[in-house]
C-alpha cells in the first residue's frame, strides 16, 4: 500500500490514476503555513477529527455522531448528481463541502478558498481510491493465504485490477458527464393553489403506492416511522448478524458500533442531500447510494417506478409536509 499510495505525510500515486498529486500534497501532511500565505495539511486541519486520518470515518469524534462521518474507503458517496451506477463527479463532492450536510455533524466549508476546496476534494478521492484498493487487498489475502495463483505478478495484478480499475470508474464519469448525470427537468409550474393541491394529492398517492414502498421506511405520513425500523446502510450492514450473538461477534471486528439508519422525517424539512426541490428530485430519481433508498426514476436498463412527472408530484408532497413550497 505504501508503495502505491505513500503515507499520510508523503502521499504518492502510481502512474495513470488521473488524480492531481499536487493538490493531494496540499491537503496531506501536518498542518502548516507557508511563507507565501498558502496552507498545508488541510485534511488534518478540517476533516481528520471526524473522518479519521485514513478516511475510515472513525476519527476521534466519530462516535458522537449519528449518522457517523463518512468512511471513504468503500468508494460510495450518498449524494450525487450522477446515476445510481456511477461514481460522483468532483463537483458533487465539492457541493457537499460547500453546503455541508444539514442535520448531521458535517459543517459547511464555504469560507475556504476555491483552491483549498479543490485540494480537499482531490484528497477525498485519493483516500477513497486507497481505501478500495485496501479492501481488494484484504479480500486477496483472505482468499489467497500465503500464495498467489500461478504465473501472476501480484503487484501488477493489484495495480491493474484494483488501483487503475477504480481510478477508471472515477475518470469515465468526469470525462462523460452527459452520460452519467441525471438531468432534472424543469419543475412544472403550479399556476393556482388548486393545481398545487392536485399535484400534492397525486404525490401522496404515489408515495403510498405499493410499487414505490416509500412508506415502508418513511412511514404512512412521512414521519420517518415506517414499519421497517431495523434498516442499515452498507457501512453498517456487515456488522449485523442474524442473531444478537452473531451481531455482537461481528461488531467486535469494527471500530464503531453498529448504527441503525433512520429514514428521514419529512416534517423536519432538513434534508441531508440538500432541501431544494431539485435536490429532492435527484434523491428520489437516483436514490441514496449505500442505503436501502433505491433509485425510483428511470435508469439505464430499468424503467423505475416513477416517471419524471411523478417524481415532481412526490417532491411537492414531501415539501408540503414541512410547510415548504
Amino acid at each position: 500500500m505504501e508503495e502505491f499510495f505513500g503515507t499520510p505525510d508523503e502521499p504518492r500515486l502510481p502512474d495513470g490514476t488521473g488524480l492531481n498529486l499536487k493538490l493531494i500534497e496540499t491537503a496531506a501532511g501536518p498542518v502548516a503555513g507557508n511563507a507565501d500565505g498558502t496552507e498545508q495539511g488541510l485534511f488534518r486541519q478540517h476533516c481528520a477529527a471526524c473522518h479519521g486520518i485514513t478516511g475510515d470515518g472513525a476519527g476521534a469524534m466519530a462516535t458522537t455522531f449519528d449518522p457517523y462521518p463518512r468512511d471513504f474507503r468503500r468508494g460510495t458517496f450518498k449524494y450525487t448528481t450522477t446515476r445510481a451506477d456511477a461514481k460522483p463527479l468532483r463537483s458533487d463532492l465539492r457541493r457537499t463541502l460547500l453546503r455541508g450536510i444539514p442535520g448531521t455533524g458535517m459543517p459547511s466549508f464555504a469560507e475556504l478558498p476555491p483552491e483549498q476546496l479543490d485540494a480537499l476534494v482531490e484528497y477525498v478521492i485519493y483516500l477513497s481510491l486507497r481505501g478500495e484498493t485496501e479492501q481488494y487487498l484484504v479480500q486477496l489475502v483472505v482468499d489467497e493465504g500465503e500464495y498467489l495463483p500461478l504465473g501472476v505478478d501480484a503487484k501488477e495484478m493489484v495495480l491493474e485490477d484494483a488501483v487503475l480499475w477504480v481510478a477508471e470508474q472515477w475518470a469515465v464519469v468526469e470525462q462523460n458527464p452527459q452520460e452519467y448525470v441525471v438531468p432534472v427537468p424543469p419543475r412544472p409550474v403550479c399556476g393556482s393553489d388548486a393545481e398545487r393541491a392536485a399535484s400534492i394529492a397525486r404525490g401522496k398517492e404515489l408515495y403510498a403506492s405499493k410499487d414505490a414502498q416509500c412508506a415502508q421506511c418513511h412511514g404512512p405520513t412521512g414521519a420517518g416511522d415506517g414499519e421497517d425500523e431495523r434498516i442499515y446502510d452498507d457501512w453498517n450492514k456487515p456488522k449485523k448478524g442474524v442473531t444478537p450473538e452473531q451481531t455482537a461477534k461481528l461488531a467486535r471486528l469494527y471500530t464503531l458500533p453498529l448504527q441503525r439508519l433512520r429514514a428521514r422525517d419529512f416534517r423536519d424539512g432538513a434534508f441531508h442531500g440538500g432541501s431544494s426541490p431539485e435536490d429532492l428530485y435527484r434523491r428520489i430519481h437516483i436514490g441514496i447510494k449505500g442505503t436501502p433508498m433505491p433509485a425510483a426514476g428511470p435508469q439505464p436498463g430499468a424503467k423505475g417506478v416513477f416517471t419524471p412527472e411523478d417524481i415532481w408530484d412526490v417532491v411537492n408532497y414531501i415539501l408540503s409536509l414541512s410547510g415548504e413550497k
Binding site: G75, T76, A84, D85, A86, E132, Q135, Y136, Q139, A162, W165, V166, Q169, K210, D211, A212, Q213, D234, G287, K289, G290, P292, M293, P294, A295, A296, Q299, G301, A302, K303, G304, V305
Partner: peptide, 26 residues
C-alpha cells in the same frame, strides 16, 4: 407485489433496483 434487488460486488457498482409489479431490469 413490488420487489427490490440489492447487491454490492467488490469494486463494482452496487445495485439497489426497485421492481414494480410486472417490472423488469437489466
Amino acid at each position: 407485489v413490488a420487489q427490490n434487488v440489492a447487491f454490492t460486488p467488490l469494486l463494482d457498482t452496487p445495485a439497489n433496483i426497485i421492481l414494480p409489479v410486472g417490472g423488469d431490469a437489466t
